[in-house]
Amino acid sequence: MGAQVHGTQEFDAKKRAEVKFSDAAMETVKTIISRYPAGKQKSALLPVLHVAQAEFGGWLSPEVMDYVASVLNIKPIEVFEVASFYTMYNLKPVGKCTLEICQTSSCWLCGAEDIIKYIEKKLGIKVGETTRDGMFTLKVAECLGSCGTAPMMQCGASFHENLTYEKVDAIIEKYKSEGRLRSYTDLDYNNTL
């Protein structure tokens, strides 16, 4: 039943038993839930999914979604239908750094396509793929609200703007040397607005 509910990924009961937020993450989750009136804890779902994705390796496995459902006291399907609707949640494993290059009008006008081609060549992967070492996943994104500083890409919480090939080189080098998971919830970020 679980495997069908969760689309392409298999549900593993053994793995599910091991999924648990760290104390720090659980504190964050409790704070989020406290923002809503009693009984409206489902409202916390989107922010809590962000916390879960950062906590459990950058994607939402069926086990993690099932766990989030239990934390919020809602049905697993309520979690899956939300996780599958919004583009920021990954339902398949991704690399440690997901590079999301904006490709909508203003970014396209300022050369986003060339940036995409450049990164594809540099990393040896196509859009949608992950490098063999599991370090980078390359994605394209629709307008990220950085039109005046185009072209741009997002990685975790950071907006890298006014991109040039040289800047791309430096960013990729930096992420590679740090080698850690980059999440939207990261407290450290880069931006140049």
Partner: peptide, 21 residues
């Protein structure tokens, strides 16, 4: 409250749905 990446949530009733999780 942060959203999850969906343009449609700028439409006010979609936004409210999203705010309700």
């Amino acid at each position: 409250q942060v959203g999850g990446g969906a343009y449609i949530c700028g439409e006010e009733t979609a936004l409210l749905e999203s705010l309700e999780g």
